[in-house]
Each structure stands twice: as C-alpha cells, then as structure tokens.
Nucleic acid binder design. Structure first.
Length: 149
DNA sequence: GCCAACGTTGGC
DNA sequence: GCCAACGTTGGC
C-alpha cells in the first residue's frame, strides 16, 4: 500500500465535509505531475488531507482511496470550473479517484510545524516554491506525521 | 527549441 | 492584496 498527500481548499472540500459525505470524487487536478501520481494510486492507499489557501494551512486528517483512477468527468462539463475545452470523451487527459474519510485530527498540523520536522525535509510540501497538489509520502514520513497527532 | 509574457498557486 | 515561484502558451 502506498501513501500520499493531497491538497484541498477547505472552502471547496474540507476534512469535515469529507467525513459527512462518506464517499467523494476527487476531481479537478489539472497538473500533469499531480495527475501522474493520481494515476499511480490504488484502492486502499491512504493519504494525508491537507488544507490549503485558508487561515490555517496544514494536515487536517487522513483519507483513503476507494476507487483507482478513471477519466475526470468535470473536464467534459462546460458548467464545471474545471472544464477543459480540449478534452473529449475519447481523449480525456485528466483523471479522478474516489476517496473516503478515515480520520480527522484533533488539531490541524500546521505547515510551519511540519517544516520544523527533520523527518519531513524531503517532502515536496515543505520545500521552497513547491506547488504540487498531489505527492507521494514515504512510509517513514507517514509514521513521522502520525507521531505528531 | 528558445524564451518572454502571462496565468496560477498558495503562504503570508 | 501582495508577491515569489512555477507552469503554460505562443511568437519567432
């Protein structure tokens, strides 16, 4: 089983929303590097749910992949914020997965706090200039974050 | 293929 | 709202 970290703006989807929704489609990823990681995900993989672009950026909890990658329908929906005019049913370059809630942390592990952890120095999240919204997490990094809860 | 201009992300 | 950093676009 692999581990990941995925960013979401809590205004769009927060860990609390996910807990209420049970099973949810994770769509709208429009960056090739992030998409490639999405495509390597398997059912049962777990990921840290990161709140971005909000008053308290940080890891808010854990969620699980419940369905591996499939064509992202929002790319074909003209009413969607994520609509891609160049995508078609035959050729849709974008990928979505289904996810469900696992755990909400008692408190958000803030970005500044995460940056202080030497065990997380290699995590793209804490590296300068990194804007990657989906990234792999090693088993060591996973355990290190769990210990901060 | 280069690279300037522009758009986006995301912390602060 | 600002701005640094990165990605994408498009002229040449």
């Amino acid at each position: 089983m692999a581990y990941w970290l995925m960013k979401s703006e809590p205004d769009e989807l927060s860990i609390t929303d996910l807990a209420r929704l049970k099973n949810t489609r994770w769509d709208g990823v429009r960056n090739y590097q992030a998409r490639n990681f999405i495509r390597s995900m398997a059912e049962g993989d777990e990921f840290f749910f990161y709140h971005s672009s909000c008053p308290e950026p940080g890891i808010a909890g854990i969620a699980r992949i419940t369905a591996a990658g499939y064509p992202d329908p929002t790319a074909l929906d003209p009413d969607s914020h994520y609509f891609d005019a160049k995508a078609s049913t035959e050729k849709n370059p974008w990928t979505a997965v289904d996810v469900s809630h696992v755990e909400t942390f008692k408190k958000v592990l803030g970005l500044g706090y995460l940056k202080q952890q030497t065990a997380l120095a290699e995590l793209p999240l804490v590296q300068k200039g990194s804007r990657l919204s989906v990234m792999p997490v090693t088993a060591e990094q996973w355990v290190a974050v769990l210990a901060l809860r």
